[in-house]
Amino acid sequence: MRKILAACLLILLSFGTLKAQGEAYQFFNAKGKALSFKQVLEALEPADAVFFGELHNNSLGHWLQLQVLKGLHKQNPELVLGSEIFEREDQLNINEWFADQITESSFESEAKLWKNYSTDYRPILRYAKENNLSFIASNVPRKYASLVSKRGLQALDSLYDDAKKSFAKLPVRVDMNLPGYLAMKEMMHGAPGNSDYMIMAQALKDATMAESLFAPLANGKKVYHINGAYHSKDGEGILWYLKQEFPDLKVVNIHTVLQDKLDKLEAGNSQAGEIILVLPKDSHETY
């Protein structure tokens, strides 16, 4: 009998180990407590704005973005969706497609699509269209960010008025001492180019994405924004600019990280967001 019980115990322990190894993802709060997907949605419900800081090329993370979108939409039918992957210049293309004034294929031929759009982002856009959600193309056109990276923010002053509609209102305030920007400068130490200008270009992106969300937030709409994790990490980037305009805004940031093991949140990943999404280091990448 003891041998039988021991064998059963060994099987149960082995099953538990295999189950742990087979987990695809795990959410945690900033204190390192594991959260179920249901608990994540409950934590997001009181927020005025929810940010999903993604790893651009991680397919599993994109699938989870869609699941969060569905959950938030169920909570709030008037949810407004926005994303870094589209520049302000693509807003008309998105509006026309959503209004069935152009076909999806026409939209995709006209818009500046990221190389993994069809696999990672198209399902999110289709869900928004099919459910009549407003979608905001929030990012600055890359040509203007590139200009700033070479010549600084002052280079924007001489642009045509129509061009200035494509980025945050001038002058753009930049706090060069924010930890994220300081870390960026440190990483660029010794690299070619002007590190201050590169930070200004990053700040222009952050400020433009934040400003793109001002109108719906001012009108009491709940916003769900998808962006690279660095743009919202540690409450900086986009979130810093949002807080300048809306000091009392309730924001929840989902920050994505990779770890070898999913059973425990590593200490270095604990403060990057209110909710931390941990994905396996060997999860699928689209590029």
Rank of each mutant, 00 (worst) to 15 (best):
V251G: 02
F15L: 15
G180K: 04
P141Y: 11
A49T: 04
D234Y: 11
F27E: 09
S14E: 07
N93R: 03
E45W: 04
N116H: 04
D260E: 14
M176A: 12
S106Y: 08
M1W: 13
D157G: 03
E87N: 08
P123K: 15
V252G: 06
A229V: 00
G193Q: 09
A183P: 02
L262C: 01
N57C: 01
L182K: 15
S83V: 00
L9F: 12
V140N: 03
S118I: 11
L92G: 07
Y144I: 05
A183C: 08
I4Y: 10
S232R: 01
K129S: 09
N131K: 13
L249D: 01
D248N: 14
N132A: 15
P280Q: 00
K165N: 12
A99H: 11
F28C: 11
E130K: 15
A215L: 12
H284R: 15
N194K: 13
Y144C: 02
Q271V: 01
V40E: 09
K281W: 01
L12D: 08
M198S: 11
N194M: 10
E104W: 12
D234T: 01
D206I: 07
L133E: 13
S118M: 08
L10G: 10
P123W: 11
Y197P: 01
V174E: 08
S149F: 05
K31I: 07
R173H: 12
F37W: 07
G235A: 00
N95D: 15
L5K: 13
V50C: 03
L213G: 02
G82Y: 08
K19M: 14
I238K: 00
L113W: 09
A272Q: 15
Y241N: 06
V80A: 11
T17F: 15
T17E: 14
F135L: 13
A229Y: 09
L41N: 00
D157L: 10
F135V: 08
L12A: 15
E285Q: 14
A30T: 14
A128G: 02
H62L: 06
A145V: 06
G71Q: 09
M209I: 09
I238D: 04
L64F: 00
G235C: 05
K261M: 09
E78A: 13
G235W: 10
Q154T: 13
L12W: 09
I199L: 10
A272G: 09
Y181F: 14
G235F: 05
D206F: 11
E42W: 04
T208M: 05
E104Q: 15
Q202Y: 09
K150V: 00
L66N: 04
